[in-house]
């Protein structure tokens, strides 16, 4: 018998392997996302973004936040909705320790996906487009925890959203628009100072704003802090908001998954196929 955690990690790695080997869209997403970033970075990356930072670096931060957020809140619910429709969730529910192993596995496969995409994008950005990597060990540390905490803050929420979606197609439709709006108002694509103040206040409720904020603190020089809403780096607040989302999601997600798999019985599956 294996430990639940190690079994979940192994499940996540196998999932990630099948995803890379079989899913054209996963590879397409990787090449597409990185490709769009490189094109934009080469096109206007040389312009200054203020505070002595090139546009390419500002965009690299934005794309990193975007990758973390959209993988957690868009890709993950789709995967879970597909697992639910195909019956993988129900099969795991029939196994001892099935649901914790499933949740761990999905979290691991999503973290793998995020790390892979961010690594490929940053490497290409640094090599080709003149992206400035974090300048000090301390900045690297900030980058590290911002990435991991940012992922942790959206993965359980993504799992909960996935549990509530009845099928992958409706999940894509329902989740696409709100997350696009959040992308626009959270200051990861457009500097938040360019938007009305009330929009900035709304954005600060969600983890995406703070993910971008912490990443900017890692990548941008101290002087860039003046362009932030508060005029300084607020890393404590960033960690707190992302932490609250993480904990709320971790409480909510397993409960929702158990609830939907109870409803998602074999008869229900058969009915839907008729």
């Amino acid at each position: 018998m294996n430990g639940t955690l190690s079994l979940g990690v192994r499940r996540g790695l196998i999932e990630q392997g099948t995803l890379l080997r079989d899913r054209k869209e996963a590879i397409g997403q990787l090449v597409g996302g990185v490709g769009v970033f490189l094109l934009l970075a080469l096109w206007m990356g040389g312009n200054p973004a203020g505070g002595g930072v090139s546009m390419a670096t500002f965009m690299a931060v934005g794309f990193t936040a975007f990758i973390v957020f959209s993988t957690g809140v868009n890709s993950l619910p789709l995967l879970i909705a597909a697992d639910r429709e195909e019956g993988a969730l129900l099969r795991l529910r029939a196994l001892p320790r099935g649901i914790p192993v499933y949740v761990t596995g999905r979290a691991v496969s999503v973290l793998c996906q995020i790390l892979l995409q961010v690594a490929v994008m940053l490497l290409a950005g640094v090599l080709v487009a003149g992206v400035r990597p974090p300048a000090s060990p301390q900045a690297w540390l900030t980058f590290g925890w911002a990435l991991v905490l940012g992922a942790l803050s959206v993965v359980p929420i993504g799992a909960a959203l996935g549990a509530m979606m009845s099928n992958p197609k409706s999940a894509a439709l329902v989740l696409g628009l709100p997350s696009m709006v959040l992308m626009l108002i959270s200051g990861v694509m457009i500097p938040v100072r360019m938007l009305p103040e009330v929009v900035g206040r709304i954005a600060q409720v969600f983890p995406l704003y703070w993910e971008g904020h912490a990443l900017r603190a890692a990548f941008l020089p101290q002087s860039a802090a003046a362009a932030e809403l508060g005029g300084t780096w607020q890393l404590g607040t960033a960690a707190t908001v992302m932490g609250v989302w993480t904990i709320a999601g971790m409480v909510l997600a397993p409960w929702l998954l158990r609830k939907v798999t109870r409803e998602e019985s074999g008869t229900r599956q058969a009915e839907r196929r008729i």
Partner: peptide, 25 residues
């Protein structure tokens, strides 16, 4: 448990899926 019409894990290899399920026991 063997339910009706299962079509889960379509992208997994047969032995990998069986090995993974076995590891729960």
């Amino acid at each position: 448990v063997v339910l009706q019409n299962w079509r889960d894990h379509p992208r997994w290899q047969v032995e990998k899926l069986l090995g993974h399920v076995a590891a729960h026991y």
